[in-house]
């Protein structure tokens, strides 16, 4: 596999992932296939310090699992993930005890499903304050309250509601509670899993500007998992695309959106729904059966749905390689394809 080159700004690498795999055992032994589900399989990537790194891809392709593995919240079955922020240097898979505790201060997760992640018996104030209290980051209750109010206001939450329980909030309000909780301790690295998916575009713009501000002013790095490609295009510096547990393409954002090289990326970009009600034709639809991660197709895992698949694709697995500066992809024929796009997507 290619050594990933350090392009341009020579930023220090914060997270370095090599051949990472997360396999879940399948319950029950009644089918003859291998008894694992390969949620993430052989992912290699680097996240530079202070970047906004986007992760997109099909539902079920392993984005959440990868994000959780980087926070040591999903079991790493193979490969390595290293975290080095200049102060500490951790091999994530091996973390335990004091080091794991310390890592939890440096890295935070905003869950995809806020409903499941907010304790129904705690008030919103206590939910947001908990990381500060557990990590003993404040010296008095007043200071804690001050920090809670500050971050809640930044997340556009009404301060008079901090005494309420989460069920009395709307979906988007709950999502902002989860964001406030993750950011209150000013961690260095945040995995934001569909963190703005429930917000209307105006509040979404607000929260995205807030996250961008954290990146710019405090140098916080983000792994931003999202299915909303126009949001990713605006906020991320770098994007990686996943399909069935694998990385199929990664590049700086403008390159990926203007010159996608992998047919899956191209299909994804063309499916962005148009804002024009008179343009309902839809983009290029993906035909063919969606393969299963318990029994992935041989060769290129995308070949069952790829409009360009040839014999080689059915036989040999394409390796991730560099097409040009900092632009990597895993497709046998990527050099032949030119999916150059006028704009980032169909929606103008």
């Amino acid at each position: 596999m290619n050594e990933i080159v350090n392009n341009g700004d020579n930023k220090q690498t914060l997270i370095s992932v090599r051949d990472l795999a997360v396999h879940f055992p399948l319950r029950g032994g009644w089918f003859a296939e291998k008894h694992v589900l390969k949620a993430v399989d052989g992912v290699t990537l680097e996240i530079k310090l202070g970047t906004f790194f986007g992760l997109v891809g099909e539902s079920g392709s392993g984005k959440t699992t990868l994000g959780r593995a980087l926070l040591k919240a999903a079991p790493i079955s193979r490969g390595t993930a290293e975290f080095a922020d200049g102060e500490v240097d951790y091999n994530i898979a091996e973390l335990k005890g004091k080091e794991l505790q310390d890592y939890r201060k440096r890295a935070q997760l905003i869950f995809q499903d806020p409903y499941a992640s907010l304790s129904p018996r705690m008030t919103v104030r206590d939910i947001i304050a908990e990381p500060l209290e557990v990590m003993k980051l404040t010296s008095s209750r007043d200071e804690t309250n001050e920090r809670v109010r500050e971050i809640a206001a930044k997340c556009r939450l009404n301060l008079e509601h901090l005494r309420r329980f989460p069920h009395a909030f709307s979906g988007g309000q709950r999502q902002r509670i989860a964001i406030a909780r993750a950011l209150v301790s000013s961690p260095g690295f945040v995995v934001a899993d569909e963190a703005v998916a429930a917000l209307d575009v105006s509040i979404q713009a607000d929260v995205l500007n807030l996250l961008k501000g954290f990146q710019r002013d405090l140098g916080i790095s983000f792994l931003f998992i999202s299915h909303d490609l126009s949001v990713v295009a605006h906020i991320c510096d770098h994007v990686a695309v996943m399909y069935l547990g694998r990385l199929v393409e990664t590049a700086p954002t403008d390159k990926l959106f203007s010159h996608p090289r992998h047919p899956y990326t191209s299909a994804l970009l063309s499916a962005i729904p148009s804002l024009d009600p008179d343009d309902r034709a839809g983009g290029q639809k993906l035909e063919g059966e969606i393969p299963s991660p318990t029994n992935p197709p041989p060769g290129c895992t995308f070949h069952t749905r790829c409009p360009f698949a040839r014999d080689l694709c059915r036989q040999e697995e394409p390796q991730l390689r560099e097409f040009d500066d900092d632009h990597f992809g895993a497709c046998h024929f990527a050099e032949e394809f030119d999916f150059t796009r006028e704009h980032g997507g169909r929606a103008a």
């Binding site: 099909e58 979906g171 429930a198 299915h227």
Partner: peptide
């Protein structure tokens, strides 16, 4: 109620 918040665009379609 927000039935597609977690779906990528191809599956959403």
């Amino acid at each position: 109620d927000e039935p597609t918040t977690a779906l990528d665009v191809t599956i959403q379609a």
